[in-house]
């Protein structure tokens, strides 16, 4: 049984330096929709470049309607442009599908982890308390590599992965090719969230009717 999603969607926040992970995510979602396989929730993708921008964006998205958020996007993008001379990411109209973002709306937050921000990401993941957010770590290629010793690369990447899991990462991706495996996570998150309507029920129709009768508690 598919979920009646209406105009509901999953919000994806992607915090990365370049834009390659967000691009891969867009391709994966588009491919899934065009192949018309199992249902996945509609997506709205928001790209940021730093953890500070991500925190600001999350804060805004949980409190303001999307109209205000779009303005905030512009502000954040212009800040990013002035700070790092990175051109602002063009917004994809195809992914802007909702009029408002309720406070309890589910979202998946993807954060690229490198040597320079590992401590900040660990702290960020471990201090977030929103039940409707899921965090995914995107491992930078250079992370955990030490010169010339293949065995230690594997060991240290595993070690870092363990720490990221411990901090609260729901999944850890090593390469953009793995990004399609986040789509089932989005489906599960949507199924578990009341914003997407009633989840599938396992009890029988007779049992459901019986439970709904007013005298069943007596």
């Amino acid at each position: 049984m598919s979920i009646q999603c209406g105009d509901r969607y999953i919000f994806w926040f992607v915090c990365e330096r370049t834009g390659r992970w967000a691009a891969a995510l867009r391709v994966a979602i588009a491919r899934h929709h065009s192949s018309d396989r199992s249902w996945i929730p509609l997506a709205r993708i928001k790209e940021v470049r730093t953890l500070t921008q991500l925190m600001g964006s999350l804060l805004l998205s949980r409190k303001l309607p999307v109209g205000d958020l779009s303005e905030a996007d512009d502000v954040l993008n212009s800040r990013a442009e002035s700070a790092s001379e990175t051109p602002p990411t063009p917004r994809r109209p195809g992914f802007l599908l909702s009029n408002s973002l309720p406070k309890d709306h589910p979202a998946i937050v993807l954060v690229e982890v490198g040597e320079e921000n590992l401590a900040d990401v660990l702290e960020f993941f471990s201090t977030q308390r929103d039940q409707n957010l899921r965090f995914v770590a995107l491992m930078d290629d250079s992370l955990g590599k030490s010169a010339g010793n293949t065995k230690s690369i594997v060991y240290d990447r595993d070690f870092i992965c363990d720490a990221l899991c411990e901090a609260g990462a729901a999944d850890i991706l090593q390469t953009p090719r793995q990004i399609a495996r986040l789509l089932p996570l989005a489906v599960r998150l949507a199924q578990a969230n009341s914003c997407f309507g009633k989840p599938a029920r396992d009890d029988s129709i007779a049992e459901m009717a019986k439970l709904a009768l007013p005298w069943q508690d007596d």
Partner: peptide, 21 residues
């Protein structure tokens, strides 16, 4: 020095913080 040692220090600080939390 080798970056990996700094990464270990980072994780160590994180785990110490978690243990206190």
């Amino acid at each position: 020095e080798a970056t990996i040692e700094e990464l270990h220090r980072t994780i160590r600080r994180f785990r110490r913080g978690q243990a206190q939390r």
